[in-house]
Design a protein around this nucleic acid. Structure first.
Lengths: 257, 257
DNA sequence: GGGTAATTCTCATTTAATGAGAATCGAGTG
DNA sequence: CACTCGATTCTCATTAAATGAGAATTACCC
């Protein structure tokens, strides 16, 4: 059955087809797509063929369907995420080469955290799943550090949307409200054992302007380190230097470097 | 007037809207979009609003339209270009940190060269235009080095499509046919003054498998160096090491390391 | 307050899109 | 080679998504 709320536009259907693919589902048969996208088989074939003709989707020799390079190209040419990532790369690279730990750039989008880039150490498993994945803001340092530097109404909206966040108790800082207050005071988040036992997520905000009182976080730079990391005390200063560099790169001004 | 060849589908129109944006046109008014996409204004407003609702496009506070983060996210989750880029990053990083020159990863697509990634030296201008840009294959080393390692029928198709390529005379190697033959013998392309005077483009192919006779290039790794670069003799060996590393990363086998 | 452009809304009309089922194709099996 | 089955394309009567001009509303500027 098709959607009942309003009419099922062609755009809705195309987006459901494109959304069916992710890091674990890179190739799908047309029958699978039809089911995942909730579109009758004949219509799915027609839309898939139209998309393949434009290279938004690609047909593999075995008949399976995957995303086409044109979709990437359209997005890469002028997406804000790509601009941010490109500007951030030298700073992420600095952080990654100093600590040799997973280093991420992330943003908040639609009340979730979205990973824009992840640099991993040489010998770590290539893990595509990390870039473009979403996580609840309140479960990771890089989310909390961005939330802490948002207008109060955005924080309130978030709590309204995720009441379970207000039930959280963070190791060493207590409630989410107390945790956000500490992050606001410190200017960084450093939380143990959030996603994985034995690791610490350290994150700093990237602000929308170099100085000023009402700065808003537009991204975060973060690393994941072992809890007993020997260079632990150096992490935040290095992240902050990277963050300030990125903010200046994004907002060049006449102020002295 | 709308297109006359066949009917103007919603998908056609949506793709024309998305294609209107590029590195130089990151924000457009709805009126500009209507003109660029050749869609009546009322229809453009309607489609733009639908796309903005899904965050495929975004509305800026000044009313301008730009690409939305969801488009990037859809593409980043499972696009082959992103997988290739992710696998290549350690090797590109190696090359870039050794020579401190622009380092690129590119593929052939639809008889053109498409830049998938570009790492630049620290102090170079951040130049978004390079990633996701297309160039004629026969005008750059990284294009020629991939063309040289394609099946003959693909080379023939290319010449049929771009007869002007057969009129080219490359410095030191002559015609394109002779140049391709030399690249096939050498296993790399190193051409002076192709895009910019005073520079050399050095490129090696990334093959579809580690060994074997009928290997096909699926990408290229390349650097742009000054013609009088002091480490010129080291460039190709380093690029080849990076390329072999990438091929092995893409095609892990049981063969010894 | 007036002027102008941007934007939304309306709705009669158009036509793109639909999708079941027939037809065709391709792969696998005996 | 014939048969079976699933994949895929094609057909076409019907539907409803889409259209787009122009009116209405909103926002901005002077």
């Amino acid at each position: 059955m098709t959607q009942t709320s309003s009419s099922d536009t062609v755009l809705d259907r195309v987006l459901r087809i494109l959304s069916a693919f992710d890091a674990r589902r890179r190739q799908l048969t047309v029958a699978e797509l039809s089911q995942l996208a909730d579109i009758p088989l004949a219509t799915t074939y027609r839309l898939v063929n139209q998309l393949a003709k434009e290279n938004i989707l690609t047909r593999y020799p075995n008949g399976n369907i995957g995303l086409g390079i044109r979709l990437w190209e359209l997005a890469a040419r002028s997406s804000p995420a790509v601009s941010l990532r490109t500007a951030a790369m030298p700073f992420l690279d600095d952080v990654q080469s100093i600590f040799r730990q997973h280093t991420q750039l992330s943003v908040l989008d639609d009340h979730e955290l979205l990973v824009v880039e992840r640099l991993s150490s040489r010998n770590s498993v290539v893990n595509q799943a990390t870039v473009a994945t979403r996580m609840p803001i309140h479960t990771v340092s890089m989310g909390l550090v961005q939330l802490a530097f948002q207008p109060q109404y955005i924080i309130d909206d978030y709590f309204a949307l995720y009441p379970e966040a207000t039930d959280m108790s963070y190791p060493g800082t207590g409630s989410i409200t107390d945790t956000l207050a500490k992050i606001q005071r410190d200017g960084f988040a450093m939380l143990d054992g959030m996603l994985d036992d034995g690791t610490t997520g350290a994150a700093v905000p990237v602000f929308d302007k170099p100085t000023g009182r009402k700065r808003v976080a537009i991204a975060a730079i973060s690393v994941v380190i072992p809890e007993d990391f020997e260079s632990r005390s150096a992490v935040v200063p290095v992240l902050m230097a990277a963050s300030r560099g990125l903010t200046r790169a994004l907002h060049p001004t006449a102020e002295p470097g």
